[in-house]
Design a protein around this nucleic acid. Structure first.
Length: 265
DNA sequence: GCTCATGTTCCCCT
DNA sequence: CAGGGGAACATGAG
């Protein structure tokens, strides 16, 4: 479930356990997620070096080493873990071994990306254009980005070149918390902007602390997978709808037209 | 067997 | 040109 909070958790794993330790061995078990790199090149560029820093921009993990950087995206099903005694899992694609354990990247669906660049290269060559990280975005900055968009609110939030880090579930959660209709245009007014910014900060802060999107009883995401999803706020029936070509869970009562009688919870 | 899936990219339509 | 929708990618889950 790799959205921003998950990738932040992956970043922390590397920062806490792997940074500044010499890389002893690199094993590439499947090269379909490599971009512009061969398994051999990954090995020769990493073995004997050490990561000096672990950074994240949106859903991208960027690990800096001497004269090298590893740039990784986890697609829909990728994950990163630390293990001290490595036994292979079927979906494991890359193992970076250190003296006391290994960083393992798994990706059952192979929709992720791993690239190894020279230290001086700009990661944007791999990541494509990215907007400011959703975690750090200020209210004024958010207003600028939304005001120039002529798309739906949800399509704008999902666009990594506008704001980096929000995925389908996180966008639904933020829109639900801010009581805004996913399909409405992105041109929010003052009070809507304030609600959206507050919800974004709140959702990201709690999700990053948890290491994933919480699915508790007060979260919209907790209703995903339920046969009859219920709004945790107004107890009305939630609905599924296609917005921005993505399946979107929303509350028509809470997130409907503000002027409709009895619409707001 | 079937449908759907948290991401991204590309292609076609309006 | 801009935006929306759908398919494709590869594979597993229900």
């Amino acid at each position: 479930v790799p959205e921003l909070p998950d990738v932040e958790r992956f970043r922390r794993i590397v920062a806490d356990r792997a940074v500044h330790k010499p890389i002893v061995e690199v094993e590439v078990r499947n090269d379909t997620i490599l971009r512009g790199t061969s398994p051999r090149a990954v090995r020769t560029r990493l073995v004997g070096r050490a990561f000096s820093d672990a950074n994240r921009h949106g859903k991208w993990l960027i690990l800096a080493a001497d004269e090298t950087q590893l740039v990784a995206h986890f697609g829909m099903t990728g994950a990163l873990r630390w293990t001290s005694d490595y036994s292979r899992g079927d979906a494991d694609r890359l193992a970076i071994r250190f003296g006391d354990g290994s960083v393992i990247v798994s990706d059952p669906r192979n929709l992720g990306t791993i690239a190894v660049l020279a230290g001086a290269d700009d990661p944007v060559a791999v990541t494509g254009p990215l907007g400011p990280d959703a975690r750090d975005i200020g209210a004024n900055e958010l207003e600028q980005l939304l005001r120039t968009s002529r798309r739906s609110l949800k399509a704008t939030l999902l666009d990594q070149a506008t704001i980096a880090g929000l995925g389908n579930m996180l966008s639904d959660e933020v829109l639900w918390q801010s009581r805004l209709d996913p399909a409405r245009r992105a041109d929010v007014d003052r009070s809507e902007l304030a609600a959206l910014h507050r919800a974004m900060r709140n959702v990201l802060s709690l999700a990053i602390r948890a290491g994933h999107i919480p699915r508790g009883p007060t979260w919209l995401s907790g209703q995903r997978g339920e046969d009859d999803p219920i709004c945790p706020r107004c107890a009305g029936a939630l609905e599924w709808r296609r917005v921005a070509a993505r399946s979107s869970l929303w509350c028509p009562r809470c997130q409907g037209n503000r002027d409709a009688p009895g619409a707001m919870c």
